[in-house]
Structure formats: structure tokens, C-alpha cells
Design a protein around this nucleic acid. Sequence first.
DNA 1: TGATCGGTGTGAGCGGGATCACATCGTCGG
DNA 2: CCGACGATGTGATCCCGCTCACACCGATCA
Lengths: 233, 233
Amino acid sequence: MADHPISSLDPIELLKPLTPVERAALARQCRFRRYRTEEQITDHLGEGRDICFVVLGRVRVVNHSLSGKEVSFDDVPAGGFFGELSAIDGGRRSASVVAVADSLIAFLGPRAFQELLTRHPELAWQVMKRLAAVVRAATARIMDLSTLAANNRVQAELLRLAKPGMKGNSTAVIAPVPAHSDIAARVSTTRETVARVLSDLARDGIVKRRADTLVIRDVGALERMVEEVRGGA
Amino acid sequence: MADHPISSLDPIELLKPLTPVERAALARQCRFRRYRTEEQITDHLGEGRDICFVVLGRVRVVNHSLSGKEVSFDDVPAGGFFGELSAIDGGRRSASVVAVADSLIAFLGPRAFQELLTRHPELAWQVMKRLAAVVRAATARIMDLSTLAANNRVQAELLRLAKPGMKGNSTAVIAPVPAHSDIAARVSTTRETVARVLSDLARDGIVKRRADTLVIRDVGALERMVEEVRGGA
DNA sequence: TGATCGGTGTGAGCGGGATCACATCGTCGG
DNA sequence: CCGACGATGTGATCCCGCTCACACCGATCA
């Protein structure tokens, strides 16, 4: 369809073990739909049970408290998938999903998904690994929320963001810098607290702010600030 | 062995679909071990990769911050299992597990577990459902930690404890009452805060304390107290 | 070029709840 | 029957960080 450039499942990591023919057959069972940035794909407590493949773009799993507070979970880049939970257990959606870039999503019904996994145990195995990773991330986050103070959680998040951008072993570059409010939503604090932590770190020369990058000059110092509270008095 | 009353996997829910003969064969691949109450079974970051079946007793998944703060996750009753994560992805243990009653645990190596799941897709499916349930519980908890105040989290936990003990639709009985410190560990607050919330609820006639049971006289009122903060101003 | 708007910086103030510190109160072991 | 210990109830204090409020600094657009 002229509507979308590729209606293929080729970019999906999970489906790599399939032959091109099998993938094409599967694609024919899917419903494809484009979404613009900011557009909502799935609603918390929604009734859909499809598994969703991110063919193009990038989506974010978020949730809002009724009071409007936003809590954000993982981002899913192109090649990934989401919506497994409902496809697996038939329950309602556990979170909302919004596009954070123009995206193309493929929807596959739960029956077809189950059949796929039964026919291809390697895929079932991959899905389990993915779920295991999600559980690990969630437990780590619960630990952070339970044992770390707000500004230490921000520092910890900076370290996570720094991981991919390590230059040498004491400096790292974060680029582009997420909006403060995005960081805040990821560690459950306020935009203001994030700004203040960043100010403090800049004052102490631990980070340096540049146009749209953040340079961390002393990763070790940052790690120590987080650990020493984890370790308590 | 005289060491343990049954070295059978018959009580395990997950393995019900197997024939008694298959289950017996699987049991022969397991290592069985007894644990007394309070005894530690698995250590956070430990190297074991076995999946663990709770044949008898009851275990609790907990974690400690280095400062000693205890955060408790799910309890696993007899018939359940834990340790799937490491068995699936080969990573270190994501939490500690301690016996909360004298327990008999069966350990199965990761290879044997994987083979079991490959040979029996129904079981793989069950494991996925279990993982999905864990993810749902974890995301709900993250939402609670992020959007609810400490005393509202305690109220929410009381509601969860009340669910199984509903008598009529406005009263419920919790028996036996967990120690305040256990409740505190489940909702990431302090023992004192739990005691205070309970005092306040008793003062308002919403709960009634008895010997070792807690009677909730107005479940609706409790729900409202939680919801109205979830909903914000 | 001014206006609007989203992102950012930072001060002031207040309140929830963690912390510390005791007082009970049962229950168990001797 | 007493002492010890674990669980509980409650007051006093203190401080983190949320909230509110406002200024600033680009961008984008009419």
C-alpha cells in the first residue's frame, strides 16, 4: 500500500530465525498501521490482545496516574515488540504505548502469535528471555525506588544513560540529552529535582553541559555518590 | 531418603500436565534439599542457575540494600517455583530467597529445564504466563511506588490482604495478620508508618484489631482513601 | 520582530514520613 | 514466676524533595 514504505516484518529481531518466506506469510496475517510522533498506540487497560512489532520508528511504554503524573517504562526501538503480556495471558493492557518517533507498527492476533510460538520453540525461547529481561529491569527499579533518595536515582539514571557513550573509563558523553522531564518520569521525581542535581554536579565539575550533549567528566565520582547511599551509613 | 518425607514433584502445579512416570523421571534429575524457617536458599547475585520447585513449605523472595533495608517481593507457596530467570537467561540471581516455613526444595539444572520446556510446549506456555504475571505485578508496584504516598501504599496493601478474606461486600478478615515490619517491607516504608496507619484506621472505625486477626469493617471507605489520592486533587 | 511556547534554572516554603527514642505487652524458656 | 526478647504504639524532631512561582533562553511562526 502506498500508505507505508515497507509492510514487511524483516526488521524484527525476534523473527530473524524464520525464513523470508515464513516471514512474508506471517506479514500477511498482520495489520499494519502508521503512527506519528506523540500518537497513542495502545491504552492502559485497553482491550486489544495483539502482539505489536515495531517495524519502523520508536515507541515508549508509559503510564499515567489518574492525577496525570507520568511514569515511563522502557522504550522499544525499531526491530522490537511490545504487547506480549496481553497476547500471552489474555489480560488487559498493562500500560499505554505512544510513538516517540513516526512509527510503523504491525499487529498480530493472539491466536496467530500462540501458533507461531508453538511451531517455533526457538521463538518461544526468545520471548521468555525478553520477559526475563523485563522482570530483571523491573526488580532493579523497585529496589532503586525503595532504597535510593530522589537525587541518587537521578544520578543512577545518568550513569545508565552514560553507559553507551563511554570515552575512556572516566568520561562519557550523553547525546542527545533527554528532556529533564523525561528523565524525571523515568526515575519518578520532578523536573526541578533533575535540574538541581545537574546543577550541583556541574558546580562540582563532575559534569559539563554543552549545547545538546552532556559530558560526564568523572564517572567514578558519580558511581561513588550512588553507591555510598546504597551502602548506607 | 529418610531425610525428606517425599522426594516427588507431584505437588508442583507446573508439572501437572506430565504423566506420573515423566514426573518421576524428572524427579530423578533433581537435587532435593530441606530448609528450615529463616534459612536462606538463594543469594542475590549468586551463581546458581537451577530452577527451584517448592515441594513443601513456603518461601519468600526478598532483597536487601547494602544498608540493610529489606524489600520483599512475592511469596511462593508449595507447588510453585522460582529461579526461572537465571535458568532462562543464564544471568545471576536477581534476588535472595528465604524459607518462611520449613520447606523442601527441588533443584533442576538449567539444561534439563530447557529440554523439558522444548519437549513440552504446554509447560513453556505456563512459564510464560507466570512471567507475564510477575511483570504485571512489578509494573503495578512501580506505579504504586511512584504515585502513592507511603500511608496510601499501606492502605492499598491492606486491601490486597483483605481480598481473600471477604465476608459480604463491605467487611473482610485478615488472619493471621502479618507482622507490621513484613507489611512495611512489601510497600517500602517503615514499621512505624504501618502502625500509625492502622491506628488511624482503628480510630475512624474502619478496622478493628482482634487477637491475631484484623477485621476490616468498611472496605469501601478504604478503597476510597486510596483512590482519591490516585486521582489527585 | 514581536509573540508564543517548550524547555530550563533557581529561590522560598511546607509537609510527609523517616529516624530516634521510649513505653507497653505477650510469649517463651528457664 | 521472672527476665528476655520480639512485636507493637506513639511522641518529638528534622530534613528531603515536592510544590509553587517566576525569570530566562532559544526556537518557530505570523
